[in-house]
Amino acid sequence: MNLNHKILYPVKGQQKNIFFSGKGGVGKTSMACITAVETAKKGFRTLLLTTDPASHIGNVLDCPITDEITNVHNQENLYAVKIDQKKATEEYKEQVLQDARDKFDQTTIMAMEEELDSPCTEEMASFQKFVDYAGGSDYEVIVVDTAPTGHTLRLLELPMDWSKQIQMKAGVSTEISKEDQIQKDRFDRVINMMKNPEQTTFSFVMYPEKTPIAEAYRASEELKTLGISTQLAVGNLVIPEEHAITPFFKNRREMQLNYLEEMKETFPESAHLEVPMYGEEIKGLYMLKEIGEKIFK
């Protein structure tokens, strides 16, 4: 299926961020890996990044992936990293508290420690790690394999509430520090980049059934309130026509085709991509390249 090149590839001199989201189990990780391999093959220095604690990008790439950036199989332009939420959270909390110890008494510090034990802190720490990567200039394309939909939405909503974090760090009567102002500026730049459709492609992956389509639509509507548009809808695990030769698979494929049409009606302003179901596990660079050549034409 033909895709507008702007959806996948960066405009000269700009960075492209490509997010893959959707409910659990729809194939976000596979799509992120296929896309990262494709953009790297096209000559763009690419970082594949996962914010999903349960991600298995290492299994799909057939290469160990850690919280340190790894060159994948010595392939030119292809790198991957996995955000370690626990480590990122501890680093973030220590950074906040270290700044505060020079300003406040022990009672205030204890109150801040309690505040920092909230789930919001873990998500903010993960997003700050993403900002560290996206706010730099080392990569032309960053492909993001996100956690399931609800977690992703919370992650994207966090920076909109950045002022509360700043106030907690600064205190009631203390002005924003120079370091916090620099960090806020970086957050703002990344958020503006995410709202810019030339610089960020937000994609929902779904298999062609009612529930994944409905969940993706609800999430896309919530993203609109953040100023982020859905540019790509991926229908995954489509039964190939040549394999729909028994009554069971014929019926399943017919059902899927109907839902693929519903996807087009649900996301009329998005590009659409159909990815076939494969008889074997999607794994390794050779298979990822082969699939990319078939679906990105």
Rank of each mutant, 00 (worst) to 15 (best):
E115L: 09
K41Q: 15
G27H: 03
D117M: 11
G24F: 00
T35H: 11
G22D: 01
D84L: 02
E76P: 09
K103N: 05
K103Q: 14
H73F: 02
T39V: 09
A40Q: 06
N74S: 13
N59I: 12
N71T: 07
V60L: 05
D52C: 07
N71V: 06
E68C: 07
Y92L: 01
D105L: 03
F104L: 03
D84C: 01
G58S: 14
T35I: 12
T121D: 07
L97K: 00
E38S: 14
L47K: 14
R101N: 07
Y92K: 01
S118P: 03
K42R: 14
A32L: 06
M112E: 04
Q98V: 04
E94Y: 02
T51Q: 08
N74Y: 10
I57F: 09
E76C: 01
G25S: 02
F44P: 07
L61E: 05
Y79K: 03
M124L: 15
L47S: 12
A54K: 15
E123Q: 10
D117G: 13
H73R: 14
L78K: 02
K103S: 12
N77V: 05
Y79L: 04
I83T: 00
T66L: 03
A54M: 14
T29E: 02
T108K: 15
D105E: 04
Q106T: 12
E122N: 09
T66S: 14
A32S: 15
D84G: 00
V60K: 06
T46Y: 11
E115C: 07
T89M: 01
M112N: 03
S21W: 04
I34F: 05
I69G: 06
S30L: 04
G43K: 09
I65C: 08
T39S: 15
F44I: 05
S30D: 08
D105K: 04
E91W: 00
A125P: 13
E113S: 13
E114W: 13
E115V: 08
T29N: 05
N74D: 14
G43F: 09
I57Q: 11
N59H: 15
S126C: 13
L49S: 07
D52L: 12
R101L: 10
L97D: 00
K28F: 06
T70A: 08
M124H: 09
D67C: 04
V96K: 03
I65E: 03
V96N: 03
G58C: 10
T29C: 03
S118E: 13
F104H: 00
D99F: 14
N77D: 07
E90N: 05
Y79C: 03
I109P: 06
L61C: 04
D105Q: 03
R45M: 10
L61A: 03
L78P: 03
H56P: 00
M112C: 01
S118M: 10
K82F: 02
N59S: 15
Y92N: 00
S21Q: 01
E115Y: 12
Q95R: 15
V81E: 05
K86D: 06
E94W: 02
L116A: 12
I109A: 05
T39L: 11
F44D: 13
A88T: 02
S126H: 09
E113K: 14
D102P: 04
L116R: 10
K42L: 10
M124A: 13
E68R: 13
F127K: 10
K82M: 07
G25T: 00
G22P: 01
N59W: 07
Q106S: 11
T66D: 10
D84K: 01
L97T: 01
